[in-house]
Design a protein around this nucleic acid. Structure first.
Lengths: 391, 391
DNA sequence: GGACGCTGAAGAACCGTTTCTCCATGAACG
DNA sequence: CGTTCATGGAGAAACGGTTCTTCAGCGTCC
């Protein structure tokens, strides 16, 4: 019964060890053709419900699991999405944005899963032999450097690419990013309102979009307001360098009376540095840093943080990507789109046909105000849902 | 030139839009057969170096990328490894062991990559349709619950499964875990030596191995030493419940003078609770918690933590899994094993043929001693290799 | 009563590799 | 000069699904 398959001109099935049941086995057991089995299981074709359910039952009984590889080969869809992370050194994930990345990846995984896709984590540094060995329907790229060869090749070979972080020069299908400029300006205003006269910045040396946009926004603001910029840079991927840079910043002769740190650990580092210099927070020094960690709710004093809302970003990025994947279609010429395949939030058919820039989406950030940035009332306030960083 | 493929009885190739070059295109362009191309590119067969390099060059020129799906279908190997995480509620990752998981996943990704595999993150809750749509060569399971149906099915269908955390009743190929009993006993001894008379435990309500083994070790120790157990339990996946439980523990009439918290956030929670009750740490209360986070080096006072060394675990788990994958072979009868395929650390051929228990590996933990567990010298000591958290 | 349309289902091509089998060719050798 | 070998390479069968096309049967409508 089980090994009935040598009709159809197949090899006599020399009594292999417990081979997994194939579609042919199911067909034989149910007394139908493999076409019927495929249709019955996938809800396609014109079959009476009776046949459908009978086939399904037989398949169930045989423990039939369709071969993912075969299906992928035929349909051209693997159900796999790459999640590319930039690497510093050997470790696959970026250190500095760690909590951000973790949250973002978590949300991305959820979002993908709920639409039937799974995520493959792929450091950008992995060599071709790994990349090209995996059938990806599309890729999410986190903060791609300018002219990323990987992204270029992917895009060229027709794989949709959506980036988290506005891409510099890479061609991508779409991108999502925070409105970093608005965020920084909002923070600077917030600090000013709290009484800051000279606001310093702790920033990174790398050239990724986040660092660049944020720093530029700061410099621009300084120019407009007429404050001399006071900032220190350090390689953000080096956990130890942050503390040193924080120290440098507070040791300057033109010591700032408020600091915004661009990276997650800056809060603790700055707090420690302040302590070393006998500066009280927030009385002598106002503090804000960008972080997703809730430890800053429990520090002494609690530190105001800017959240980039990585969950929202991750969800959006993945949904955009899947829209692009399912929209591309690469169709046989025209209207293959069934009208009732399920409502999508976004109109499909991305894939910048012409030469226009890829569609980008800016997402708001959220400033979580705590004691460290309020000179008067130590009462903790939270900005409504979003930060209108208008100036 | 590019569309040369209609020999070999293939469809006339009706001038498709920029199809990716296939192996047939390469063969045609190089004037050889597809067999030769395959052999040349994969370093197989008997070919003169000249042919090999010529074919390679043509393939390069055409931008040829072999289809991962086709290769997987033919060879039965996808180069993909599943990373299964238990889920609480909708979110894919366990909350409580978050830092642990992140570190572990990172190490696992690295290890897999360096052996040519990629990781697919798959929450255990995902339904079959996602699981079975992916060709997995093997799976890593994190802390599987007893009788996990998913694991059982995977194992039964011949997919190697290696678990992080000693499995309860699931059949797995191999497992890796910390020596939780030894770790807990070590901590209890450490606290005793520091002068603790009544040691409390903050533990979880779930039945995973970690919680169970640790709690049992605690209870056993209490029995041997003659101390009445003092512990509180809470659902570890609920971030808010931890603070409440910590409070409960310190509010008890038989208040402990030392506490070990099993989960990452317990340190902060206990510290906060202690503050509320006016207890000084370490003078009135000794504190240790299990965590991978380095924020405990910066708290006031710094808190002693137990690290489970997730990096080591992740690396080991993946290497065991890949050894199993490459060892299984499911061979055609016998010695298919080429003697020189590359040195492996472990002897392959796992796959508990009989009924014996699967091979397990216990890995040591590391206690990072800080001020919170030392009543006398406020001088911070650290077990050998790690950071000196200055005070 | 024949053309037609609809239902239910089977046939077979196809997706793009890998790999097993086999065939020329020419050199070496008895 | 006829075998045997080693070499280089081609042919074709899988791998296991999906899907396009075809087809038989049967009720219906002019």
């Amino acid at each position: 019964m089980t090994a009935a398959a040598n009709q159809n001109g197949r090899r006599p099935t020399t009594s292999r060890r417990l081979e997994r049941a194939g579609i042919r086995d199911v067909a034989a057991a149910a007394g139908v053709s493999i076409t019927t089995v495929s249709d019955a299981l996938n809800g396609k074709g014109r079959l009476p419900d009776e046949t459908r359910s009978r086939v399904r039952e037989v398949a169930e009984r045989l423990g039939y699991r369709p071969s993912a590889a075969a299906r992928t080969l035929r349909t051209g869809r693997s159900g796999l999405i790459g999640l590319t992370v930039t690497t510093y050194g050997e470790e696959p994930f970026t250190f500095t944005e760690f909590a951000y990345f973790a949250e973002m990846a978590r949300a991305a995984t959820s979002a993908a899963l709920s639409r039937g896709y799974a995520l493959v984590v792929l450091p950008a540094s992995s060599r071709h032999d790994v990349w090209s060995n995996i059938a990806l329907d599309g890729t999410v790229v986190i903060d791609p450097p300018d002219q990323d060869p990987l992204v270029s090749e992917l895009y060229r070979s027709g794989v949709p690419v959506v980036s988290d972080g506005k891409p510099g020069n890479c061609p991508v299908t779409a991108w999502v990013d925070n409105d970093h400029e608005a965020a920084v300006l909002g923070i600077l205003d917030h600090l000013s309102e709290a009484g800051a006269r000279r606001i310093g910045l702790l920033t990174g040396t790398s050239t990724d979009t986040y660092t660049r946009l944020s720093t530029d926004a700061y410099l621009g603001w300084c120019g407009r307001v007429g404050q001399e910029p006071v900032y220190e840079t350090y390689p953000a991927h080096d956990p130890a360098a942050g503390a040193v840079a924080a120290d440098r910043l507070l040791a300057r002769p033109d010591r700032p009376d408020a600091v915004y740190g661009l990276f997650d650990p800056n809060g603790t580092d700055l707090l420690a540095a302040a302590r070393r210099y006998g500066l009280r927070v927030p009385d002598d020094l106002l503090l804000v840093c960008c972080s997703e960690s809730d430890v800053y709710a429990g520090t002494e004093p609690p530190i105001t943080t800017l959240s980039l809302k990585p969950r929202r970003i991750g969800t959006t990025v993945v949904n955009l990507l899947i829209d692009a994947i399912e929209g591309i279609d690469s169709g046989t010429g025209g209207a293959t789109a069934d009208p009732g395949t399920g409502g999508r939030l976004f109109p499909p058919r991305y894939r910048t046909a012409g030469t226009g820039p890829p569609p980008g989406t800016l997402m708001p950030t959220e400033l979580i105000v705590r004691a460290s940035s309020q000179r008067r009332s130590p009462r903790t306030t939270v900005s409504p849902p979003r930060t209108p960083g208008e100036l």
